[in-house]
Amino acid sequence: MRSVVTHWILLTLLGGSACVAPNNTPREGTSLLGRELLRPELSPDRAQRMESRLAEARRQHASDPTEANAIWVGRRLAYLGRYRDALDWYTSALEEHPNSYRLLRHRGHRWITLREFVRAEKDLSRAWQQASHHSDALEPDGAPNEYNLPRSTDHTNILYHWALSLHLQGRVDEATKIWAMCLDRCPNQDMEVATRYWLAHSQRLTGNFGAAAETLRPVESNWIVLENRSYRDLCLLMSGRGSVSKVLEASHDGIADATVAYGVAAWRTQMGGDTRGARAALALVAERGAWAAFGTIAAEADLYRLGYGDQHDDAAEIEDQ
């Protein structure tokens, strides 16, 4: 019964059917399970806004080709779903700014988006080697929260994405060490809940449930979290102080939906018992989650390590229950 309820929740969260893109939609890459990664479609209004901001970023860079302006062009390309173009741009910008750990951080992130984890690891480890000799600084937000308060920093973003690149390769012990380094440098509870979630998840995967419990213990429902409410509620769920219904309340967009869906599916997997049902839940996230979301990528990586190359049958099986 618990399996059926969980599957129904995930279907509700991710939608009843996978999105079908037009035939002429550009292909950005391929998922770990063989799914074509097609450029996300934007509404006409949103596309127009994003194109206008990209054009402005290009104008600013043309008149003042600084590291910061180069980064904004790459970010604006990525916000349009043009991840390959963003990677090419960052590579070109690194020729002009070869010692830029910030450009490496952003390129590393987009290697993760396109499932190129080894390349991401290389960029992000290089970025940390350079950044660790510099003082930390807040990183401007591309999509500011309602208070317009940036929540992450150069150091935490580099370490967070570096740890993720290792985790997605299945090198969980190594990832755990980097997550811990990131946690030590978190400037606020927003960054802290995201880091504690992934650290505890890694610890549980290695069988260190005691360490995971200690990692999750400080998180409280009244923490001041402006952006990462999904991660806060997932931490509470994993620690036995939350519920799936509470986690769902924090979900509000494609990225958050995939984060929540993966968190619930992974939690089910770690609880043991219904292995087939847990695998089917992961398959649903991998097939229907927003493909650039870390939750979707992590679901793919989990299934890939299980030797599962075609998730369609299990995902379809959920609908029949």
Rank of each mutant, 00 (worst) to 15 (best):
M1Q: 13
G16A: 11
S31F: 04
S31K: 07
R35H: 14
E36A: 15
P44Y: 06
P44L: 02
A47T: 05
Q48M: 08
S52K: 15
A57W: 10
R58A: 03
R58G: 01
R59N: 10
P65C: 08
W72N: 11
A78K: 13
Y79M: 12
N99H: 13
Y101N: 01
G108H: 03
I112P: 03
E116P: 01
R119I: 01
S125G: 10
R126D: 13
R126P: 04
H133R: 15
D136L: 02
P140A: 09
E146H: 15
Y147C: 04
P150N: 05
T153A: 01
L166K: 13
P187D: 11
W198A: 00
G210R: 02
R217T: 06
P218L: 04
L226W: 11
R229A: 15
S230V: 14
R232N: 03
S245Q: 12
K246Y: 04
Y262R: 06
G263R: 01
R268S: 12
D274L: 01
R279D: 05
A280D: 13
L282W: 07
L284G: 06
G289Y: 07
G295Q: 08
T296E: 09
I297N: 05
I297R: 12
A301P: 02
D302W: 13
D313K: 11
A316Y: 10
I318A: 15
E319D: 12
